[in-house]
Design a protein around this nucleic acid. Sequence first.
DNA 1: ACCTGAACACCGTTCAAGT
DNA 2: ACCTGAACACCGTTCAAGT
Lengths: 221, 221
Amino acid sequence: MSRPALSRDRVLRAAVELADSGGISAVTMRRLAEELGAEAMSLYHHVANKEQVLDGIVDVIGAEINEAAARVTLPSHGDGWRKAARVRILAAREVLLRHPWAPALIESRTNASPEILLHMDALVGIMRDGGFSHDQTHHALHALGSRAVGFTQELFTPGNGPATGEPDPVMAAMAKRLPNLVGMLSEIAHDDPDSTLGWCDDQAEFEFGLDIVLDGLDRLR
Amino acid sequence: MSRPALSRDRVLRAAVELADSGGISAVTMRRLAEELGAEAMSLYHHVANKEQVLDGIVDVIGAEINEAAARVTLPSHGDGWRKAARVRILAAREVLLRHPWAPALIESRTNASPEILLHMDALVGIMRDGGFSHDQTHHALHALGSRAVGFTQELFTPGNGPATGEPDPVMAAMAKRLPNLVGMLSEIAHDDPDSTLGWCDDQAEFEFGLDIVLDGLDRLR
DNA sequence: ACCTGAACACCGTTCAAGT
DNA sequence: ACCTGAACACCGTTCAAGT
């Protein structure tokens, strides 16, 4: 009957599962405890507070990223840097696609996650191997921004969100005042009526943006 | 004695002020009401719920962006597109620098803000004037991502956060396992010991990353 | 040492009642 | 029509008490 003892690790793993199934807002101390067959107050013996749970979740995801990246490591010397950086970043992205709540959480945290720092360190190593100076590498990290971790926050690029087939209601109401946007969207929908809402392929778009930045950086090398 | 009547507009303006002075977490229905000399429940006569308050705040910021951009509009035909897009985006950025909580909020909203859509529409107009196809413009918006609205979420690029002069404690503890990152940071600190923590100039970095993307796009035109 | 129940100080929101 | 007080169903967290 007695469930396995609580531990920081079990708490964090349960928190990730909870977020996966109910979004980040489902992660409350009370529900987390319930999931673990304990009382909310028991969690505080393994975790200082909720902030630390959220930091811990990010680190769990970071570890998943580093594991995934380790399986696709490529030689990074000279020209190889570009491909090596690209596959590492795309490996991170695949992890995030399994945890769609993670990008927003990662960005909202102000504490550094050790695992994500390891990911960044690996990326810096790749760029150094490629021949970038420390200064160029520093600029490069800023230019990549969150893309270095495999995502771009999509704002509400119109057409985003659940692919209901319905046009965004806010956009529809404003169509008259958004001639350029509406023109663009209607043409794209026309060109490719079968893709999601006829307009967005996130993976292709991510890679397009990533390649623009990587190419720009390669040119500076 | 009787304060001016409540209104959706006054509620939203007070919410922005509250966020400016105490961060987004200071925006609660109860405190918002207090700020307005009313009871929390009175707000619900002017706003459906808190979600709508948050959407409204984003729209207020969006309106500020469009006002700022209107003051720096440039001709956008042909080669002019690049400069026109650049100044509009940097105008947006200046607004966001006055509301440091806004980027995270903008990214977290799933509803489109009419004012931000107007900003995007203007940007699409500029790119169309510059000679981009609808398809290219669509790709360009994705490549720009949040940069189109004047910000890049900075993750915890180490060295971020309050410029205490102290190195990040998490990084310090892991120095041995982060040889590349530590090497990069120490050299940058050495090169330019007087800037913030000797390492980050957000504005310069933003413009560097923006120019990389704009150049990449210009090359496709 | 680990876990717990009751309690506290907050939330957003509903509802019935006031003017 | 606009505003309100009391109440409800949640939060995170403290504290004293149990084993």
